[in-house]
Design a protein around this nucleic acid. Structure first.
Lengths: 186, 186
DNA sequence: TGTATTACTGACTAAACAGTCAGCAAATCT
DNA sequence: AGATTTGCTGACTGTTTAGTCAGTAATACA
């Protein structure tokens, strides 16, 4: 019913399939079952729509990861929870994740303020810094550690998606790859 | 002088800056200093141009990595050479690498045959399989190992590019991160 | 119930676009 | 030198596009 939401959903679907610029606003409107002009009532320009969609999905990702991180004891447990929460979300919301990938690898990214991008990685940075302080994680440049962590997560997600694992096998892969990551960082 | 080359160079520059669809063929022609129609003399459609550019850069990457891999003794040395050759190439050819990233994270990728994509990863697969056989590398799914290897390489490249390291520091980062990767895989 | 505000419409337009084509220029062949 | 092929041109076109706007429907408010 909510037309704004319907526009975002249709845009997501079409953007991932055809790309941002190869998807006309008219097709988004049609797919959403609304009038052409309605799209511009909610989003003044097409760019506004693309960026709104990005911020919308990004905040969903953040909410998901933040939820899972509570009430754990050791750093390893916290980090593992964060890792598997991220992966499970990406697996569950393939299209949304594809969109984020596509967006962050496009010139659109420059239209987003740096702080906006940094916002959701703050908690992990804190975690990692704490780990270094406590001599659990190797004393390396924090940005380098973060790069390895996110690169690992990202590529394991790609791996899991291309294969068509059962839920159990998926969980096992997440477990195993986290142990490997942990081995590398400690 | 070679107009085909000039078109490819201009297209590369503009695609990376503005994206594929946000870059009109007319601007590419202008930037290349050639007539509008000339572009279509060499590349029947814009898609043909995009794909030709991808294949061109990809073959440059392959040639570079293949060159460096010769005459090494241990698996670790070979893999390390491959790793640093890839990273050094990416650092030296930032724009080309950005293009590959953008392309592979866009719906354009579907227009490339699967074999074409697989072609250049064959030598590494062989290397990794050999490593598993010789009990040097952990006995894990080969696709998983490859995913971790490429994810690691990719993210370390991102890391090096965002920082503005000296040549020496760059080499040190490449060395250090390879050791970490090796630690994880063995 | 009447009035004001907000949500939404779809026909429309000006600009931008990929691709065409008739023809010119330069090189290659005979 | 003349003929033929190949490289290249840029004005042109039919189509597609983002975005507008005058107006209608629905809701809220008095």
């Amino acid at each position: 019913m909510d037309k704004r939401k319907r526009i975002l959903e249709s845009a997501l679907k079409l953007f991932v399939e055809f790309g941002f610029h190869a998807t006309p606003t008219s097709k988004i409107a049609k797919e959403a079952g609304i009038a052409n002009g309605t799209l511009f009532y909610f989003f003044p320009t097409k760019d506004d729509l693309v960026i709104a969609l990005y911020l919308d999905i990004k905040s969903q990702m953040m909410a998901n990861a933040a939820l899972e991180i509570e009430n754990k004891t050791t750093l390893k447990e916290v980090l593992k929870d964060y890792y598997s929460a991220s992966l499970n979300w990406a697996i569950k919301h393939k299209t949304k994740f594809r969109f984020i990938e596509q967006f962050t690898n496009s010139p659109y990214l420059n239209k987003i303020a740096e702080e906006e991008i940094q916002a959701h990685i703050q908690p992990i940075y804190k975690l990692l810094k704490q780990g270094i302080k406590n001599r659990v994680i190797q004393k390396l440049d924090i940005d380098m550690i973060f790069a390895m962590l996110s690169g690992h997560t990202f590529s394991i997600n790609q791996y899991i998606i291309t294969k068509d694992f059962s839920k159990n096998k998926q969980a096992k892969v997440i477990d195993d790859t986290f142990e490997l990551l942990w081995k590398m960082l400690t």
